[in-house]
Design a protein around this nucleic acid. Sequence first.
DNA 1: CTTTTAACTTGCATTTTGCAAGTGACTTAT
DNA 2: ATAAGTCACTTGCAAAATGCAAGTTAAAAG
Lengths: 146, 146
Amino acid sequence: MVTKKKPSPKWRSGCPLNASVEILGDRWSLLIIRDMMLRGFRSYKEFLESYEGIATNILADRLRKLMAHGIITTGRDPLDGRKVIYSLTEKGIDLAPVLTEMVLWAAAHEKTENPGLVQLIQKDKEQFLAAARERWAGKTIAARAK
Amino acid sequence: MVTKKKPSPKWRSGCPLNASVEILGDRWSLLIIRDMMLRGFRSYKEFLESYEGIATNILADRLRKLMAHGIITTGRDPLDGRKVIYSLTEKGIDLAPVLTEMVLWAAAHEKTENPGLVQLIQKDKEQFLAAARERWAGKTIAARAK
DNA sequence: CTTTTAACTTGCATTTTGCAAGTGACTTAT
DNA sequence: ATAAGTCACTTGCAAAATGCAAGTTAAAAG
């Protein structure tokens, strides 16, 4: 009888926080999700040209991983066969509270910009989250209507 | 005249989320904070023996970075000169909402364990956060009393 | 048909991660 | 007083990840 070191081979441990950091604990994934959620980005080029200057191979790698985890889905643009359209799934939009708390924490403790976003969240966090979900739902329905 | 690419040399961008992921966006930092916050860990050995099996040099590196960012502080154990005592700062305990949302997200979307923690959070998130802060405050006062 | 665009892939150098062994300071046991 | 053990790391090295720069393929535009 072998005593297995890791009961769940998928994760290093069974802790839910560990699962989160194994999926999202890098310097790019949450920024990609931010751009989809808060800026409405949907294409590789948009992500590429975001604020932080991600490398092409890293972007491709992260998008692939986010798809594998079911956080985003993809489709071809029917109007332009070259384009891939990336969208958040239900699992992906459910990350909104995580992003929101990280923004609040950094705004309280680090020198950052975009005070508008911070004030929007501080004013009414629940409303901010609801609005993010509404924008997501609108896009998702619009995508299905095509 | 040189046009600087990055207005804030400290961060890749001015976005607060970016600041958070530059500090916490790896697979170990938030787990160390979890162990301090939720399990009361204070020593290098305790962190080393946690669930996920961190490497000694990585643990040392992450503790050093968390100190540099003002998220934890250190002191010597007055009863044992070999021991370093690690503690969360105000900045560190303010990460509780981030950890909480990550736990909830993973519990909702991944196969994980520790349902007790998840239910505790789901039952009353604000109470859970208040209790974490109270435990932290108690330790901090006790440490000062020595 | 040629040029441009979109989404990548590739080769390679650098950096990060992690294994295994080792070190110095301190405590415990003899 | 000395030897053995503990604590918190450091070190050397191999493997993996990251990121730069150039390139590729498919589709659209001219």
